[in-house]
């Protein structure tokens, strides 16, 4: 069992993650950004079609390739590499500090605290009637399930199959699907947490929602 409150405190001490950008292969490096503290952006656009901020060019055998920032953040340090120096593959170039957003913090906590039950195939999912009735009566955070319980029904092209829950027992804390929409294979369906941690998780999430400050 994990201590959620202390996990949050730990995140608060360092509310960011640091990403090191490595050279994908050997070549001569040519930095496009040279000052620490510069803000950079990751890939954007509806289809991530716009690349992130240009960090450097890496030239090998006349092939000049751009190196882009993988995520939004701030350039915090450059490794000790001179401009136009030849570098080997996998050489660390610079470090980007990415400040966590509210959603990212909640995701980290829920990922650690909840057991995610994933969709085994593409289709629409419904709760079996027993669970559905309980959920409607009590709401999320109050319905208990155990390993081996029949929980969901998968429906695809008029074929319906009952799905058995195979994770650790606990309370259904959250659902990630809508019974009218098709769910892709591998997408989370349920988040199940141990019985005694429900209240604590709720409280921490509420605290993050109200008090977490996002750095731009």
């Amino acid at each position: 069992m994990i201590d959620i409150t202390s996990l949050l405190e730990e995140i608060k001490k360092a509310p960011y993650k640091e990403l090191t950008v490595f050279t994908p292969h050997s070549g001569r490096i040519e930095f496009a950004l040279k000052e620490a503290g510069t803000t950079v952006h990751g890939a954007s656009g509806v289809w991530n079609e716009k690349p992130g901020t240009l960090l450097a060019y890496l030239t090998r055998e006349g092939n000049r390739k751009p190196v882009y920032a993988p995520e939004k953040g701030e350039l915090v340090m450059f490794h000790d590499i001179d401009d136009h120096q030849f570098v080997q593959a996998g050489t660390p170039l610079l470090k980007i500090r990415h400040f966590l957003t509210k959603q990212e913090v909640i995701d980290i906590i829920l990922k650690k605290a909840l057991h995610l039950f994933l969709a085994p195939e593409k289709g629409r999912y419904y709760f079996v009637s027993a669970i559905d009735t309980k959920l409607k009566a009590k709401g999320l955070g109050h319905v208990n399930i155990r390993q081996g319980d029949e929980v969901l029904i998968i429906s695809r092209m008029k074929r319906e199959t009952v799905l058995v829950y195979d994770g650790p027992g606990g309370i259904i804390y959250t659902t990630y699907f809508n019974s009218s929409d098709s769910v892709e294979v591998g997408s989370p369906l349920l988040g199940v947490c141990p019985n005694n941690q429900v209240e604590e998780i709720k409280e921490v999430v509420a605290r993050i929602q109200s008090g977490w400050e996002e750095k731009q």
Partner: peptide, 20 residues
Amino acid sequence: NKDRTVTCPNSDKFGCLDLW
């Protein structure tokens, strides 16, 4: 006629190596 390598635009997706 150019002594250089070229990167396939799908290299990120399929791991294509540079081509001479």
